Computed example of a mutant assay.
Amino acid sequence: MDHSGTRTEADPTFRAAEVTDVPELVALVESAYRGDASRVGWTTEADILDGQRTDPEGVRAVVEAPGSTLLVVERDGRIVACCQLEHRGEHAYFGMFAVRPELQGAGLGKVIIAEAERRVRAQWGAREMHMTVISAREELIAWYERRGYRRTGKTSPFPYGDERFGLPKRPDLEFELLVKELAGA
C-alpha cells in the first residue's frame, strides 16, 4: 500500500493454491533452494543439498490436505512466493516457504510471515506457529529469530536415503523446531 493506504500494484496478494498451480509452485520452491538459480537469493541450500527440494506429488498433497493451506503470494498477477500453513490443534505449522530468488532480501518475506501468522490466528485460533529448519542454516534461523521465533533445541533427523528430500552433501543434517507464540490468539 502507498502512504495514503491505497493498494498499489506492487503489493502482494494472497490466495489458497489450487491443483493447477502445482507445476509453477514446484518450480518456485526448487528455484529458491536448489541449484545455481537459487544462489541469486540468500535462502539457497545448494551448498548442503543436491537433488530436489520437493516434487509435484508432495506439493499436490499439501494443496489437497484437509486442515492445510498452501498460501500463494502474487504480485502483478505472477506467483512470487508461497508457504504452507497446517492446522495442528493449538498450533499451526509453517513450511514450504519460498520466495523467488531475485526478490529475496527486499522485505517480502517479512510481509508473508506476518500474513501467515495473522491467518492462522484468525482461521484456526492458533496460539503458536511451529516450523522446522535445517539446524546448519544459521543465517536462516537468525532471520526467523529476528521475527520472534525461538530455537527449542528439539531436533528430528534428516531423512537420509530418501531422495524426495534431496541428496545431502554432509553427514550432520537435522531439523530443529522453532516456535513463536502468537499474540492475540
Rank of each mutant, 00 (worst) to 15 (best):
G109S: 08
K110L: 12
I113H: 01
I113S: 08
E115A: 05
E117Y: 09
E117L: 15
R118G: 08
R118A: 13
R119S: 11
V120G: 06
R121D: 04
A122N: 14
Q123D: 15
Q123M: 08
W124D: 03
G125C: 14
G125M: 13
R127T: 11
M129P: 03
H130V: 13
M131C: 11
M131S: 10
I134P: 00
I134Y: 00
S135E: 06
A136F: 03
A136I: 01
R137F: 02
R137Q: 12
R137H: 01
R137V: 01
E139K: 11
I141W: 03
I141Y: 02
A142Y: 02
A142N: 11
W143Q: 06
R146P: 06
R147S: 04
R147M: 14
G148R: 12
Y149F: 15
Y149T: 01
R150W: 10
G153E: 14
T155D: 02
T155Y: 03
S156N: 02
P157N: 12
P157A: 14
P159M: 07
P159L: 06
P159D: 07
Y160W: 09
Y160Q: 10
R164G: 05
K169D: 02
K169S: 04
D172T: 07
D172P: 02
L173V: 04
E174Q: 13
F175N: 02
F175P: 00
L177T: 07
L178E: 00
V179E: 11
V179G: 05
V179C: 03
